[in-house]
Design a protein around this nucleic acid. Structure first.
Lengths: 117, 117
DNA sequence: TATAGTAATATACTAAAGTATAGTGCCAAT
DNA sequence: ATTGGCACTATACTTTAGTATATTACTATA
């Protein structure tokens, strides 16, 4: 296993690992979905109500992908009728660290772009 | 202007600012291009040689977008023949902080996914 | 018995992103 | 005079992402 230092200094590994992370958060709906389950588990229809314009097809597709990527955990309770709940995994929760850095850069970058124009 | 704290606690602003940053780095070629000019200015053909499979159309298109977003600076020298050089802006350089966080998360996430399977 | 909620899936479509291939105008060296 | 490098642009195409709309199987309530 390479150390973080090794990876950061190797342009190829660098891009590969970043893409791993990028795939988890890019696309039109991944962030809104993560945002929706950020403060606790939610059900399919609840998430759908949180994100008014998403279609069930997209929500279903993206949830599956997020589950496959280990970011979201899908829990089925055998109540009658069945209840399905989605929540962030531990990795999913820790992605907020990345998102926070993105917000910080976004704000700084925006002010520096405004300053020049 | 909202404080970083305010933004982080508001889901709508949260997603908007992250998307700002996300737009700068997402797509197939933006990261390889940023990676190519990370350690110093480069010319069009040099970047193209660094990224073997990129077409000039894509390189041109992406460089324009990165320039428009204030991440890359395009410098034209009126030598004969004209020389064009691309380099990261100050904002562009500081995006490495975001990228480093992404690498760290990517590595941790990958190990935690392996651990479970 | 009809209506509505839950958790989706199916089919068909449009729009956005990316690829393939060729060509331009400039100059410099052979 | 031709070949080749530089910095692109143009046109046509394919692939991927996202949308629209309808439908399913189940249950609970009015």
């Amino acid at each position: 296993m390479d150390s973080i230092k090794d990876i950061k200094s190797c342009p190829i590994q660098y891009v590969l690992y970043i893409n791993d992370t990028l795939n988890v958060i890019s696309g039109k709906w991944k962030l809104p979905i993560i945002g929706s389950v950020l403060f606790g588990k939610k059900r399919f229809t609840e998430i759908q109500r949180n994100i008014p314009k998403i279609t069930p097809r997209m929500l279903s597709k993206e949830l599956k992908e997020l589950e496959l990527n280990g970011v979201i955990v899908r829990k089925v309770y055998d109540s009658i009728p069945v209840t399905v709940e989605y929540e962030l995994s531990e990795s999913g929760k820790s992605i907020t660290e990345v998102l926070d850095k993105m917000i910080e850069w976004g704000i700084e970058h925006r002010t520096s772009v405004f300053a020049k124009s």
